[in-house]
Design a protein around this nucleic acid. Structure first.
Length: 493
RNA sequence: GGGCCAUUAGCUCAGUUGGCAGAGCACUUGACUUUUAAUCAAGGUGUCCCGCGUUCGAAUCGCGGAUGGCUCACCA
């Protein structure tokens, strides 16, 4: 191990430090460069070669490979859009410059000006007249052929992943386009995008454990939001009629290939419609985003063909459990009957579960995994839906649906409960659960109840997990593959 | 939290029965004026994840630990 200013560094690093010192001594400190006027990007030159042949261009990017041929040097320069080959000839750049350029390392940030041409083998390239080092790379990049495969390192050092694994950049470009397409879809339908607090004294709107933080001046604990629901419904009370918020929420729960502690959702609320309206909107939204971004509504996810062409299958939870689990809840009228039937089917429910909780339990245990093609599951039990209107003809159920694709929950929507008395009772029931130790039960939000007392129009609400939608549309295996910087345990602990 | 697997050069990975620590890429030097993972010649890669133990001798065997992956559980 070599030493550098007292620090041990690998031979590869020591060589680069020597090169930097040499450049600085020659008055060419690469880190002193401030600007470089770029005229073209790689993709543009490759696509528009017909028109650009023989014209002058200035390009810049990262040096990804070098193929020296004596007095000629071929390099691949990687920029925002991809790669383009640089052709550097001693005759053209001059002997002095050529010997400097030959010492550039893979990973260096380089600018080049020259003319567009095609090599003997037909590759569109830039014949460099002048090459400038814009920043020195002091660390060796991962291997050029295999790239960086260690998933842990890829997530921890995403910049390296982006440099050496081109498909990664593609996923995040697609993510950005999906989000843009969602906004365009909603904005075109008269929705208003709003921002509501991430920091509050009540974490409501979902069943989840929150992150707790502390405000120093007020000297009080606060929560990071676990949903945007209760604030957005206040805006419906306020008369905004169609609102949405796309943003980060935080849940202090387990991590898995489908769960990250912070993730992005979109919630939208529309006055004077119900969950049927939300179902139509969901179908239209996801199908049109797929069409706009991917150019098709037939996609592949992990080898499975998924057809997003509307209309999608709609089936009630009771029907689905009958169909897939063979338990007919229509014939089970009491909690005891339901418990016995569920146990007889070979499941192990908690003995304290009510009929509605047992229906939901059977659905999660036996049905979810079978819902590969887009499927709306309708009419959830009231016990698991504390913010949802009851079905007028079946008060043990609610006007709620969840959307499943590839056996995963992608969206959750309902006819919003606007009866302040009923809402208070539901909160009270949640409070009892909380007192019994259920840390995920909803907290009572008095101001939200006050808002409902002023009157909220009938209203449909919808939430979509953006990360899961991006996973679906980019064929990503893990949620970590659609988050640039997924939550990671620190290395030094 | 349980089970299984992995950790060796900057990166990707071999490493036999316990017997000198290896390859490719990258790097250095040299040759080469149209290469495509360029080629050819020569050269050095190192806390074998950490600790303890067994042994004449440990990357290899045992025990404990760390980190990660997969999986089950948990988690709308």
């Amino acid at each position: 191990m070599q030493q550098f200013e007292g620090q041990p560094v690998s031979e590869l690093v020591a060589i680069r430090r020597d090169k930097l010192a040499e450049l600085r001594q020659g008055g060419a400190d690469p880190f002193a460069v401030t600007t470089y006027g770029v005229t073209h990007h790689s993709a543009q030159i490759l696509q528009d070669f017909e028109n650009l042949e023989d014209s002058e261009v200035r390009i810049a990017g990262r040096l990804m490979s070098k193929r020296g041929m004596g007095k000629v040097l071929f390099c691949d320069l990687s920029d925002r859009d991809g790669k383009i080959q640089l052709f550097i000839k001693q005759d053209v750049v001059g002997e002095a410059d050529y010997s400097v350029i030959k010492k550039y390392d893979i990973g260096d940030i380089v600018g080049a000006e020259g003319t567009v041409f095609k090599t003997k083998t037909g590759e569109v390239s830039v014949r460099a007249a002048k090459v400038t080092l814009l920043a020195k790379s002091m660390l060796p990049l991962p291997e050029k052929f295999h790239g960086l495969t260690d998933t842990d390192l890829r997530y921890r050092q995403r910049y390296l992943d982006l440099i050496v694994n081109p498909d990664v950049k593609k996923t995040f470009v697609t993510r950005s386009r999906i989000i843009t397409a969602i906004r365009a879809f909603l904005d075109a339908r008269g929705y208003l995008e709003v921002d509501t607090p991430m920091l509050g004294t009540i974490a409501g709107g979902a069943a989840a454990r929150p992150f707790i933080t502390h405000h120093n001046t007020l000297d009080m604990d606060m929560y990071l939001r676990i949903a945007t629901e209760l604030h957005l419904k206040r805006l419906i009370v306020g008369g905004m009629e169609k609102v949405y918020e796309m943003g980060r929420i935080f849940r202090n729960e387990g991590m898995s290939i489908k769960h990250n502690p912070e993730f992005t959702t979109i919630e939208l609320y529309e006055a004077f419609t119900d969950y049927n309206g939300m179902m139509n909107l969901t179908e239209q939204l996801i199908a049109s985003v797929a069409r706009d971004v991917l150019g098709t509504m037939k996609i592949a996810y992990q080898g499975e063909e998924i057809d997003l062409t509307p209309p999608w299958r709609r089936i009630t939870m009771t029907e689905a459990v009958k169909l897939y689990a063979g338990i007919d809840f229509d014939t089970l009228t009491t909690d005891e009957q339901a418990l016995a039937a569920v146990k007889a089917a070979g499941l192990s429910p908690d003995a304290k579960m009510s009929r509605g909780e047992l229906l939901n339990f059977c659905f999660e245990a036996r049905v979810e995994e079978k819902l590969v093609q887009p499927t709306f599951i309708l009419d959830y039990p009231v016990e698991v839906s504390p913010l949802t209107k009851k079905k007028p003809d079946a008060p043990e159920l609610t006007e709620r649906f969840e959307l499943f694709i590839t056996a995963r929950e992608l969206a959750n929507a309902y006819s919003e409960l606007n009866d302040p008395f009923d809402q208070r009772e539901r909160f009270m029931r949640q409070m009892l659960l909380r007192e019994k130790g259920d840390e995920e039960a909803n907290m009572i939000d008095e101001d939200f109840l006050t808002a409902l007392e002023y009157g909220m129009p009938p209203c449909g609400g919808l939430g979509i997990g953006i990360d899961r939608l991006v996973m679906l549309l980019t064929d990503s295996y893990s949620i970590r593959d659609v988050l640039l910087f997924p939550t990671m345990k620190p290395l030094d602990k």
